[in-house]
Every structure is written in C-alpha cells, then in structure tokens.
Design a protein around this nucleic acid. Structure first.
Length: 482
RNA sequence: GGCGCCAUCGUCUAGCGGUUAGGACGGAGCCCUCUCAAGGCUUAAACACGGGUUCGAUUCCCGUUGGCGCUACCA
C-alpha cells in the first residue's frame, strides 16, 4: 500500500461572497496539501443555475486572492456537465438509478403529528423500464434518482479523520436526486463524479456534509470506485463556524460580517486572518497561538481538529472578533518591517494620503507606529498626521496646548530646533529639557505639548521618536503654528 | 418528526480515570512610564443535568436536556 500524493479540492459554489467558513475550509485544504506536498484544486461548483451569479464568482476570487494561498489546478463544474450526465445515465443503465416523474413536494407539507421522513416514491422506484422510457419519450419531466440499496440490511460506514467511525443504515437514506428535471446534475452527482474523475484523495469540507457522505459513499461504490484503480477518498469534516447566538452564519441574517472581505477592508493582514481562522476548530496542542504560515503548514493535523462548532465573536457594533484583532496585531508587530512597509504604503496611497517623500525614514515611521496599531487601517485612521498635512486636533490634545505657557514655549522650541545644527532624538530631547529647565516648567509640559502640536493627538509614540517620524521641516512648522 | 453530529471559563481551547481543571482573547488591578499602547505581574471566570462502571470520574457507558446539520430537482 503505497501512500499516494494527496489531491485535495476546495469547491465553493458562486451563490454569495466568500464566506468565513468557506475560507477556513480552503485554508485547511491548502495546509494539508502543502504539508503533504500534494495538489490543491479549486473547483467551482456551479450547477445551481438559479442562484449562481458572476458577482459571487468574482468575490470568491477576490477573497481567495487576498488570502494569497495559491492553488494548482482549477475547474468549473459547468464545463464538465457531459461527464456528470454520462456517469448519471450509466448508473441508470446499470439499475443504480431510476426516473421519478413525481413533482417535487415541499417537505413542510407533511402533516403534523404523523410526519414520516420521506425516503422515496414507491411507484417511481418500482416502475417498469418500458413505462419509464415511454413517459420520458413523451416529454414528461422527471428527476433521476439514486436507488439506495434498501432490500437487504446494509450499514454504510466510513472513518472520518476528524469525527472517527461513522455509520448509518442505508434504509434511512433517501433516494437522492442525481439529475434535475432540467437535466442539470445535482450537487451530489457532480461532486462525486468530479471527485472521482479528478482523483481526489481527501475530501476536507464542512460538517454540514457529514450526513451527505453516506450518500456519496454509495454513489462512489456505484460508480465503480474500486474498479477505477484507486481507493475511495478519505473524509475529514470540519466543525462549523457559527454566530454568537449559535446559529449558522448566513449572509441574510448576519450581513457582511461573514464575508472574508470585511476583514480585508478592516485592514487585516491576510496571515493574521488565516492564523485566526486556523485557531477556530484546530489547535497545535501546545498552547502556541501566534503561528507563521510555515508553522501552520508544519503543525496541521486532523487529530488537532475538534468536533464542536466554533463561535465567531462579533456584534452589530463591531464585526471583528477581538481575538482576530489581537492576532493580527501580533503579526503586524513582529513581521519584518521590510515586508510591512509596502503594505502600509499601499493602504495610505489607497486612502489618498500623500506618499512620504523621505524613502529612507518611512520604514522607521512604520516601525515606530506599529507597536501601538492593530491593523493596516490604523495607519490611515490614526497615522494621518504622520503622512498628511491636514489632520484633526483632538480635544484631549487641545487641552495640552491650552496649558499655561504651553504655546509660547512650543513656539520657542520650534525656533531653537530650527536654529540647531542637529536633529536627532537625543539632540531634541536635550533642547526640550534645557528649555523646560530654563523656564522652570516640567518637561512634561513640552513633551505632551509636542505630541499635541505635531499630531493633534494626546496619545501616541514617545515624543522624541515622534519628532523624527514627523520630520524636521514639518515638526518645526507645526510647533510655530500652535 | 426521522437520521446524524456535538456539549470545559463570556469567547477560542488544553485535558484522552487520580490535575490547585492549564493557556489565549476579552474584563479587573498593579508595575513600568513623557501620553497611549506594548511588555511584565496579579486576579475574577468553566467541566449542562441524572444515572451507572470504578477505590476514584471533566475524562468511559446509558439516558435527559440543549445546540447544530441533513431530510423530495441548494451546495
């Protein structure tokens, strides 16, 4: 038994934007593929013509490209319908499927009290082939259903890499549809046909598919999986991501918080978000949480995936999970400045702020500011005074400037700095402290005043570091203008 | 209703018969300090319930409750 190179797939359907749960499924597939040096496949499961939209398709690609995790092969089910139909009809010819001319019935119509789970329509399941052919030929619409083996007792079972041994009686499985009356394959048919054809070795997907798996195993069997020269895929189901009230995350109910792009637009680093998602339902068992991409690839194990749903913490007021923010901050503060600086440059440019002229000092500014920022957007929102000429004077900062003698001394400090030959953190500190001593005021008056004058903020980096961040010319101008 | 899955601090989680039930986020407090962060320290906070099995259950089994998923041409 040689271990085959894993082939995994992420199969979103373009019926909405890239969902946070889908993103995590993608990431776990990707981690496993990279760790095992396997193949990552992106398959667009677009067999539901009614609900597919181009906008959804674009947003899925937007979300995936933001994550920055590349895949190796790409397919679209709508381009593979011939395969699905061919296999469906071959199942029919072999007796594994039958036509059902019964119109679809809403499940809710079943009478209360005596609701018996529907499994199949007996007349259709037992219909003679001759009659079935005749009615089909006359143009009567039908769905093609899988004939679940239910004449003899049969237990369908498999071992899930996360949930362990799973089994279900075949008699409890309904005769699911393979082909719609429109001729379009259903999810079950298309997915299994493609998984077989694409030689998928590991199906890693949400737990909402756990009970579908029994159907898929039956389908794989009927498709002759064993005879196709390789084993049936292994399954790994992932616990679901749910809202704080425990409900399934949905676009309609929870709005854009479920979209990957909400985090992107909030200024998250892709890796900060990835790290956060990995910790929702998986952990490396050693209390480590801040993990690099290489570490995630190395440490990921199905055994480390747990089985209960995980809550994504958000409120109407704040769509961002606090832990995600913290993790992002950890990466923001520890990643190489050389990698962070271009990202910061991109967001401030996008926000329409002037790009710093001084190429050399920019990384230093970024380095100084990031210690107290959590997202890239913080550089735009809080960092404005460091990049733009116009910025707001906050009330708390105004109070500092309104302190007795503050304005007068700050203007004096500005004049001295202008006259000084040196402009370094150390030299500025000397000038400032000397001035304070000469005039008999506490250094704090000038320190806090400087921060207020230079940034319009009462809080921020060390006052002296701040001088070099703002730059000599601008600092002096702002001091003199108080 | 049927079938399946799940159940440790507010949240993410460790735990795989004997622990002061550990860590992280968030909260509270202290230290540091030119402000705010960061950082360091301290602290509050959990085994859903009931039966078993066992010398001993958070841990194993059963049940209850609760949550989630699937349930006639969504994926």
């Amino acid at each position: 038994m040689s271990s085959q190179t894993p082939r995994v797939r992420f199969a979103p359907s373009p019926t909405g934007y890239l969902h946070i749960g889908s993103a995590r499924t993608f990431i776990f597939n990707w981690l496993y593929a990279r760790q095992q040096q396997g193949t990552m496949i992106l398959r667009i499961d677009d067999t539901d013509l009614e609900r597919n939209t181009e906008a959804s398709l674009r947003s899925i690609f937007d979300g995936l490209s933001w994550l920055g995790l590349a895949w190796d092969e790409q397919y679209r089910q709508s381009e593979r319908l011939d395969l699905h139909r061919r296999l469906a009809w071959s199942l029919f010819e072999q007796g594994f499927a039958y036509r059902d001319f019964t119109p679809a019935q809403p499940a809710e119509e079943a009478s209360e009290g005596e609701t018996v789970g529907w499994l199949f329509n007996e007349a259709a399941r037992n219909m003679e082939r001759e009659e079935s052919d005749r009615r089909a030929a006359s143009g009567e619409p039908f769905v093609l259903r899988f004939r679940v083996p239910r004449d003899a007792p049969r237990t369908v079972s498999f071992v899930d890499a996360v949930y362990g041994e799973q089994s279900k009686e075949a008699k409890d499985i309904e005769d699911f549809a393979l082909l719609r009356s429109s001729g379009m394959p259903t999810y079950h048919m298309a997915s299994c046909a493609d998984d077989a054809d694409l030689r998928i070795t590991h199906i890693i997907r949400g737990q909402d598919h756990l009970t579908n798996t029994f159907k898929h195993i039956l389908l794989f069997e009927a498709l002759g999986f064993g005879a196709m020269g390789f084993g049936a895929p292994r399954f790994a189901h992932l616990p679901l991501l749910v809202a704080p009230d425990g409900a399934k995350l949905s676009k309609r109910k929870h709005g854009p918080v479920v979209s990957v792009m909400t985090y992107a637009e909030a200024g998250f680093l892709p890796h900060g978000y990835i790290n956060f998602l990995c910790l929702l339902g998986w952990n490396p068992k050693d209390n480590r949480e801040v993990l690099s991409q290489a570490e995630l690839v190395q440490l990921f194990r199905f055994e480390g995936v747990n089985r209960s749903n995980a809550v994504v913490n958000f409120t109407e007021a704040d769509p961002i999970d606090p832990k995600a923010l913290w993790l992002n901050a950890q990466h923001l503060r520890s990643m190489p400045v050389a990698e962070l600086a271009p990202l910061v440059r991109a967001v401030i440019e996008k926000a329409g702020l002037p790009i710093p002229q001084d190429e050399a000092s920019f990384p230093n500014v970024v380095d100084t500011l990031r210690a107290r920022y959590s997202t890239l957007e913080d550089f735009v929102r809080l960092g404005r005074p460091y990049f733009a000429e116009d910025f707001a004077m906050e009330d708390t900062a105004l109070e500092k400037l309104n302190a007795p003698q503050a304005r007068e001394l700050l203007r004096e400090l500005g004049a001295r700095l202008e006259a000084a030959s040196e402009y370094t953190e150390a030299s500025i500190e000397v000038e400032l402290r000397n001035l304070a001593a000469e005039r008999g005021v506490k250094p704090g008056l000038l320190i806090n005043g400087s921060r207020a004058a230079l940034t319009g903020q009462a809080v921020g980096p060390s006052a002296f570091a701040l001088y070099t961040c703002v730059g000599r010319e601008r600092a002096i101008r702002r001091l003199k203008a108080v």
